[in-house]
């Protein structure tokens, strides 16, 4: 009968880990979205330096969150987001701010998607 308390503990631990994962994904998503919106605004104002700085900060932030996020999110999605960050940085560097704004919009969408995929919503469950 000791197995039953162990089993209940396992269920509790994993539900806590999953809940923490959702919280982690949410904070990451919110920060990334804010960065993406700020960089987008900079691109629309044609402020290349500000956009580049914001994207660099966003990349560094995502890099720091990557190890834990990779435990929860599909690696393909994280790699795709990584790729888009590199593309956006390069587009800003060469001065193509219109395209960079579009890429940043995509980054904003993907960051939200990673979070929404973790939520136990009707859409995800079924």
């Amino acid at each position: 009968m000791k197995r039953v308390p162990v089993a209940i503990s396992i269920l509790l631990i994993f539900s806590i880990i999953a809940a923490l994962g959702i919280f982690y994904a949410k904070t990451t998503c919110n920060t990334m979205s804010q960065y993406a919106l700020d960089a987008q605004e900079s691109c629309e104002r044609n402020d290349q330096a500000s956009a580049a700085q914001t994207i660099n900060r966003m990349s560094a932030y995502f890099e720091s969150r990557h190890p834990v996020l990779s435990l929860y999110a599909h690696h393909d999605e994280l790699e795709s987001l990584d790729t888009n960050l590199v593309v956006a940085a390069e587009q800003v560097r060469v001065g193509n701010l219109t395209l960079a704004a579009a890429t940043l919009s995509e980054i904003h969408f993907m960051a939200n998607h990673i979070y929404e995929r973790e939520l136990p919503s009707f859409h995800n469950l079924f």
Partner: peptide, 28 residues
Amino acid sequence: DTSIPMIIGIIPIFVLVACEVIVSGISL
């Protein structure tokens, strides 16, 4: 599929095992 995090394999296994143990305990 190595793009799937390992935890996505481990958690369902242990959840199923835990459910089975709990169901067995209640059945007793």
